[in-house]
Design a protein around this nucleic acid. Structure first.
Length: 587
RNA sequence: UGGGCUAUGGUGUAAUGGUAACACUGCAGAUUCUGGUCCUGCCUUUCCUGGUUCGAGUCCGGGUAGCCCAACCA
């Protein structure tokens, strides 16, 4: 408790609205001053950046205020769920740096839920409805028109109980009947119009085997699971606001069933809602991401273009970069559309302090230093990270024949071009100052088509980095380079947004409506055909090829890259995480 | 159109009835062996309209706009 008070005094200003509520509840002694949350993914897909926001909230708030957060698999629909996803979910949460109290499953509560449902029937709070789903839907009414009661609504409890048990026998055909809560078919809240509690699936569950054939629905599971598990703060996203009242109702019922005399005000799980994460040029829903993987638009869930946690990891973001981004966008009740630039900025900020600087030339042109001794090789010392004194140095080999970026040379440079050209002098990073002859004929070699194939320059042999002669100021910039004979050919994968429109979800929805197509056909018009560029004409310095998969790198003057898991020392592969900020743009 | 929720610079967030601010973006400059980083400066803000109040971004009424809800999904 002391710690909580301290936190409040020092940080109250920076607490988000849910944290403030938690502090208040703890101060008021709600739930015996306990704080327990849960992160409840359905194991039917991979976690994405939107889940990361929920994870940061659920686990983060427990950690911050001395509570505990369980990982709870919301596994009430065996049709869609798989252990593959369970493992991936656990891996991603751990990678983000969070620890759960325990892993639990909604299916852990199936027996309790069943017993509770039977009690509801006996109490007259539930009934078995034998109508078809179409009939039930028709009776539900619309948001503006009230629903009407089912003809089975007032059947005797014993009959409902008998049928309910038949629903779980394995002999009942799915769709034949459901268990519904008897609430109010005229409620303005659609969720109160006798919501379905149980449906027949006749399908084994990956955890409970063939024990159950009828399975509870989300609304009849979530609050009860929270209650049975001891959750105090059940934090979810805004789309569950309309479920809030129903959540509370089922919690009061289950307290009654449980013989719980505790005060409803002070002792029960409570639902809180915050805005989910929307990113422009990004599609977030699991359903649609699944389509992208199945249709081969991307190369799996961990494709670096995917907004999945594993995709972002492979792209080269660190967990801290993701968490920093989430911290920047905050938690509110406003349905915001966040600019992906903010995420990239958070990434750059993080990687600036983390990434090892290496030289890579991604569009090479040969540079020969005519006066540098042929066959001579020097080892230049390169700082791993100028932002981190403790990052050390590595060696990069230098010789007469080099590669530089084609864009770093201009045959007819304009005034603002501060790189190499006829008569221009530049510094090679960690190397020498070099200069091209004034006469283009003497410094440029072209092929028959007029393409520059080789550049010649003179090297100031007294200007090697570290020598006194290196201290003079020059007009030109400092260029990166690799030695032609001491660099490794590599593959560089550059990525752009997968989507060409700011809000693909809405665009797709509208296209579906207007053209009567669904799924991938409605997505194709908005896919960026150029979201992946594979460049096999690139060279990196030797050191970069020795680094393990997922290492954070900066290709100096180009961008942040990481080592792809496909990479091998003989054939290095790098992913562009995000470009460097470019103050100078060639016109 | 019923119910619920929301509205602060280009984007996101803060200000919890008392001087509208922070981050990102953008622009300009300085430093630089990365046209990066760091640093300096600039641009741009309370949806509209009534009311309560000494005082309203904040509270209340009425508009307007956006989001969620009519799955035997979660």
């Amino acid at each position: 408790m002391e710690e909580i008070v301290k936190t409040e005094n020092t940080e109250k200003k920076s607490l988000n609205f849910i944290e403030q509520r938690v502090v208040k509840d703890l101060e008021e002694g709600k739930n015996g001053r306990r704080l327990q949350t849960r992160f409840p993914p359905e194991p039917n897909g991979y976690l994405h950046i939107g889940h990361a926001k929920a994870i940061a909230m659920d686990f983060g708030i427990a950690k911050k205020f001395g509570g505990v957060c369980n990982l709870r698999m919301d596994d009430t629909n065996p049709q869609k769920e798989d252990t593959e996803y369970v493992e991936a979910i656990e891996r991603d949460i751990k990678w983000l740096g969070f620890e759960w109290g325990k892993v639990c499953y909604a299916s852990d509560y199936f027996q309790d839920l069943w017993d509770f449902a039977e009690w509801c029937i006996l109490q007259g709070k539930a009934y078995v409805d034998e109508q078809t789903s179409e009939e039930i839907a028709a009776q539900k009414g619309t948001p503006t028109e009230p629903g009407t009661n089912s003809i089975y609504r007032d059947r005797p409890a014993e009959e409902s109980l008998r049928l309910f048990r038949e629903m779980n026998s394995g002999k009942m055909e799915p769709g034949k009947m459901v268990l519904r809560a008897k609430i109010d078919m005229t409620s303005p809240n659609m969720h109160f119009r006798d919501p379905i509690m149980y449906r027949v699936l006749n399908m084994p569950h990956w955890r409970t085997g063939s024990k159950w054939n009828a399975y509870p629905m989300y609304d009849f599971t979530h609050g009860q699971s929270d209650y049975l598990e001891g959750v105090t703060h059940s934090i979810c996203t805004l789309e569950f606001v309309p479920h809030h009242e129903l959540y509370d109702l089922f919690v009061t019922w289950i307290k009654e069933w449980h013989g719980d005399e505790g005060d409803m005000e002070d002792n029960r799980p409570r639902q809180f809602e915050f805005n989910k994460l929307n990113l422009n040029y990004t599609l977030m829903s699991k359903r649609n991401l699944l389509i992208l993987t199945k249709e081969g638009v991307v190369n799996g869930w961990d494709d670096p273009r995917m907004p999945t946690i594993c995709g972002i990891r492979r792209r080269g973001y660190s967990p801290q970069a993701i968490l920093n981004f989430i911290d920047k966008i905050g938690y509110t009740t406003f349905d915001a559309l966040n600019d992906i630039k903010l995420m990239e900025a958070a990434c750059r900020e993080d990687l600036n302090t983390r990434a090892i600087r290496v030289n890579a030339v991604v569009d090479p042109v040969k540079l020969i230093l005519d006066n540098y001794p042929e066959g001579k090789v020097e080892e230049m010392e390169a700082v791993n990270n100028p932002e981190d004194e403790n990052s050390g140095t590595h060696v990069i080999r230098f010789s007469r024949d080099l590669y530089i970026e084609r864009s770093d040379f201009m045959e007819e440079p304009d005034k603002k071009f501060m790189r190499l050209g006829p008569g221009k002098e530049v510094r090679l990073k960690n190397g020498y100052i070099i200069k091209c002859d004034e006469d283009p004929a003497k410094c440029i070699e072209k092929d028959a088509e007029g393409n520059i194939v080789c550049i010649h320059a003179e090297c100031d042999l007294e200007s090697k980095s570290g020598m006194p002669g290196s201290n003079r100021k020059i007009k030109g910039k400092t260029l990166h380079w690799v030695s032609a004979g001491h660099s490794i050919p590599c593959e560089v994968r550059d990525y752009a947004n997968l989507w060409t429109c700011e809000n693909p979800r809405d665009a797709i929805k509208q296209y579906e409506k207007e053209n009567g197509v669904r799924g991938i056909d409605a997505m194709r018009p908005f896919l960026n055909p150029d979201s992946l560029r594979i460049n096999k004409n690139a060279y990196v310095e030797e050191y970069a090829a020795t680094l393990p998969a997922l290492s954070y790198l900066q290709f100096q003057r180009i961008g942040y890259y990481n080592v792809d898991p496909d990479s091998t020392p003989a054939h290095p592969v790098f992913n562009r995480t995000v470009g460097l900020k470019e103050a100078w743009v060639k016109k």
